[in-house]
Simulated assay, not measured.
Amino acid sequence: MPRTILGYALRCTGRHQAGLALLSIAVFLLSAVPLELQRRIVNAIVEHGALETIVWLAAAYAGVAVAEQSLKLVLNVYRGWVAEDSVRSLRTTAGEAAASAGDSTAADAGVEIAVMLEEVEPIGGFTGISVSEPLLQAGILVSVLSYMLFLDAGLALLALAFFVPQMLFVPLLQGAINRRAQSRILTKRGLSGDIVNAALTSNHDGGWAREPIARVFALNMGIYKLKFTMNLLMNLMHHSAVAVALGVGGWLALEGRIEVGTVVAMVSGMGKLNDPWGDLVNWGREFSVVDVKYRLFVEALERLSGRPAGRPSAPAA
């Protein structure tokens, strides 16, 4: 099997990844259009423009929103199909590897149970977003940022400065999450083996399970604390940027140096930047964790079959 999760996604679902990429491009190309329509509507209202103009702009806004959300629906359903088909393929591969092993120990049986019932879910699920998600979110970021810079480069850069600290603390916190995720996988595999061994030896005491269960609990709590701390810091940076855009933009509007619609579009743009940025960070977090799980999955297949894992069964076309 490929040694990385991206290698697996491209080799086994490459044609579908191309289709998902095209849908993602169509979605992010529409992302900045509502901001411009919003700016024009606000300016038309402030300047007491014609009602007919405002109605047509509002109708255009609604039409773009419907088109964008419809494309997202198709994209998400397609992603779900690719993900579930990959899960099915990975389970089949794990089953074939276990069947080829012949006699196995309780530890091997525990690994097989953990792999087939739980570990393939996030691995297969990630294939649906492996390429389309970063393409979509990065495309939205570039489209919206380009539009904001076009409207007022100084104000846009001032607000965007609050994203810089995230480049520092996100990788540090994510690294700590990854280490705990890997330890959790290995601990749960060991627990699965202990369960099978206890069943074979009729050991009903259960004391052997207390330590690994407590360790999984501690690791999960550590992941929660790190993940939500990261979310807190990211949200604080976003709201600080919005405050700057409102304060400085409001002052410039009062001075007559920019339009009120531009300030509104800037604030809306900050909101449209925050969501894809957060989604991109979440994708990076999931990628780093799933890549660890995938490497452990490949190692488990090699252990179960007693030889390097072969190419997985290709998902259905």
Rank of each mutant, 00 (worst) to 15 (best):
L90C: 06
L117A: 14
S305C: 11
L191Y: 09
M270T: 02
P134A: 06
G207Q: 00
K272S: 06
V216S: 11
L145C: 08
G139W: 05
D205M: 09
V120M: 05
N43S: 02
M221H: 08
V66A: 15
E118K: 14
E133K: 05
A58F: 01
S70M: 04
V64P: 14
A60N: 14
A62Y: 13
V77H: 09
A9L: 02
M167C: 04
I54R: 09
A218H: 14
R79A: 02
T105F: 07
E68M: 15
T13N: 15
I5R: 05
G125S: 11
G206D: 07
T4D: 01
K227A: 15
F169Q: 01
A109V: 12
D103W: 01
K225P: 10
L157W: 03
I41A: 02
A44D: 08
G271F: 00
G271N: 01
L246N: 00
V292T: 07
V289C: 11
V42T: 10
F162G: 06
F163C: 07
N282C: 08
R307N: 11
W56D: 15
F150W: 03
L30K: 13
V120W: 06
L23C: 12
V115N: 10
A109G: 13
A161V: 09
A153N: 04
L226I: 08
K188Q: 05
R79V: 02
R215V: 01
T201Q: 06
I223S: 09
Q38R: 15
P122Q: 09
E286Q: 10
W277H: 11
A243E: 01
E47G: 01
L254K: 09
A9E: 01
L75E: 00
S143A: 10
D108S: 06
G206V: 07
L149C: 02
R189S: 12
F162D: 09
S70I: 01
V131G: 08
A214V: 09
L280A: 12
L30I: 10
H239L: 15
L90S: 11
W56G: 15
L200R: 09
W81F: 00
A198I: 00
V298Y: 04
Y61V: 13
V131T: 06
L226Q: 14
R39K: 15
L304W: 11
A59F: 14
R179P: 07
S146G: 15
F217C: 08
